[in-house]
């Protein structure tokens, strides 16, 4: 079978080939370059460190969870550390990173420190082999060993692989630790005394300051009772504070104690008018859940500048 090849078809095919070929050659993929970012030290602080509380805790629990008794951590010496550490110079970093970065690293919770430090020396100094025995240095070391505060065990929480291969001994006393499914590298909650009950947090923490709430409630109530003398307002701007203690039912536990003695007759009348107001307005209707905060506080009565 013979058929005539249309020249225009040939021309079209040829043209397509030329165009496609040109496109394939001229549009080349450019390599995607990722500019390496400078690393930034990030301080990770656990919630338990901030508010000393846990979301799963009970409201009634007044004290925060404490798993181990806190020990004084050695004071971080920024200046001393500088000499020990070589500034890390990388290709991407144009200049050696100034102090700021180092400090950030220092402040990190202990585990990262372990990872970073081995560069120079294994952190626990005690394990370091002594090359030459210097009698003075030895004596110093012996003396020094005691006062050196032992690092919290958290720090020793090295990657588990290092410890396990040694030998597997079944220790009954560690069953509790074995069934503890929590991250072994977690930060143990520390405090003055051990407390196994998790709590929502303490009212002493900043997160637990609800004085804006109950304070304004107290203010509104006491202002309704306060009939202040308007004697010398233009001459004096008195201010009088009381230390008051309230019972759970909102009544006064004791007679409010004025904070200082007013020096002028008007100051005295002013102070007495405030005292009358505090006494007359009880019982105070304040939110019971913040009782720990308002059971003892200091109302301050003062004149605004005119």
């Amino acid at each position: 079978m013979k058929f005539k090849v249309d020249k225009t078809v040939l021309a079209s095919v040829a043209l397509h080939v030329v165009v496609l070929g040109a496109v394939l050659l001229s549009f080349s993929t450019r390599a995607l370059e990722v500019r390496p970012e400078e690393s930034v030290g990030v301080d990770i602080s656990l919630e338990s460190q901030v508010a000393a509380g846990m979301k799963t805790g009970k409201k009634e629990e007044k004290k925060p969870l404490v798993e181990k008794v806190a020990e004084a951590k050695p004071v971080d010496d920024a200046v001393g550390k500088i000499s020990e550490k070589q500034p890390v110079v990388t290709d991407t970093a144009p200049a050696p990173q100034p102090k700021a970065e180092e400090k950030a690293v220092e402040k990190k919770p202990d585990p990262p420190k372990v990872a970073e430090k081995p560069k120079e020396e294994p952190k626990p100094e005690e394990k370091k082999p002594e090359p030459a025995v210097d009698p003075i240095a030895e004596a110093i070391k012996k003396e020094q060993k005691k006062p050196t505060p032992p690092k919290p065990p958290v720090q020793a929480a090295k990657p588990p692989e290092q410890q396990k291969p040694k030998e597997r001994v079944f220790d009954q006393s560690k069953i509790a630790a074995l069934i503890d499914k929590r991250d072994p590298a977690r930060q143990a909650a520390t405090g003055e005394t051990l407390n196994s009950n998790a709590s929502l947090g303490m009212s002493k923490g900043r997160a637990g300051d609800n004085s804006a709430t109950w304070g304004s409630m107290f203010r509104r109530q006491v202002e309704n009772c306060w009939k202040k003398p308007y004697g010398g307002i233009e001459q004096e701007r008195p201010e009088v504070a009381f230390n008051i203690r309230l019972k759970k039912d909102g009544t006064l536990e004791a007679m409010p104690a004025p904070d200082g003695t007013p020096s002028t007759p008007y100051g005295r009348a002013y102070s007495e008018s405030a005292l009358r107001a505090i006494i007359q307005c009880q019982p105070y209707n304040l939110p019971a859940q913040f009782f720990d905060e308002w059971k003892s506080f200091t109302p301050v009565f003062q004149e605004r500048p005119i």
């Binding site: 002493k204 202002e223 306060w226 008018s273 109302p299």
Partner: peptide, 17 residues
């Protein structure tokens, strides 16, 4: 500051009973 200070300024200039 553990003793919270609550400031009260808006008393009443009402006459004293």
């Amino acid at each position: 500051l553990a003793q919270k200070r609550i400031t009260i300024t808006e008393g009443d200039f009402a006459p004293l009973p």
